[in-house]
Amino acid sequence: MHVPSSLQVKVKPNAREDRFAPGDDGIWLASLKAQPVDGKANEALIALVADYFKLRKQQVHLKSGASARIKRLLISS
């Protein structure tokens, strides 16, 4: 599987289950059970992306959008 160096992700917190999938317009879609409180949703997103691409959580970084629905992630190898 090709691991991109950066991703744009549209996040939906408070979902029934954690899910991560590519979207039609190049923006990835993430549904998270975590609430958007105290950075819990951001932590859950990083863990979900790392698990999807079989990386360590330390390899996934939130570049922008910490409090926004659309976030930019950087992936280091």
Results as ranks from 00 to 15, higher is better:
N42S: 12
S77F: 14
W28E: 10
S77G: 09
N42P: 02
P13W: 03
Q59M: 11
L32P: 03
P22N: 02
S5C: 05
K71V: 09
G23N: 07
L32Q: 08
A41M: 04
A68R: 09
H61N: 09
D18F: 02
N42Y: 02
V49W: 06
A66R: 15
D24A: 14
D18R: 09
L29M: 12
V37W: 00
D38N: 14
L48K: 07
S76A: 13
G65S: 10
K40E: 15
L73N: 04
K63H: 14
Q35R: 13
R16K: 12
L73G: 00
F53M: 08
M1D: 09
Q58P: 00
I75K: 00
A30H: 05
G65H: 04
S64C: 08
R16S: 10
L62D: 01
A30W: 05
V3Q: 03
E43L: 10
P4R: 07
W28F: 13
K10A: 12
I70S: 11
S64R: 15
V60N: 03
L45G: 05
L74Q: 05
P22M: 12
A50W: 02
Q59I: 04
R69H: 04
A47D: 13
D51G: 05
Q59C: 01
V49N: 01
D38R: 15
K40S: 14
S5W: 00
V9P: 00
S31N: 12
P4Q: 11
S5D: 08
G23F: 12
E17Q: 15
H2D: 15
S6F: 10
R56S: 13
P13L: 04
E17V: 15
D24P: 01
R56F: 11
I46L: 15
K63W: 07
R56V: 06
V11D: 00
E43N: 15
L73F: 11
D51T: 14
R56H: 08
Q35S: 14
G23A: 10
V37Y: 03
I46K: 09
K71G: 00
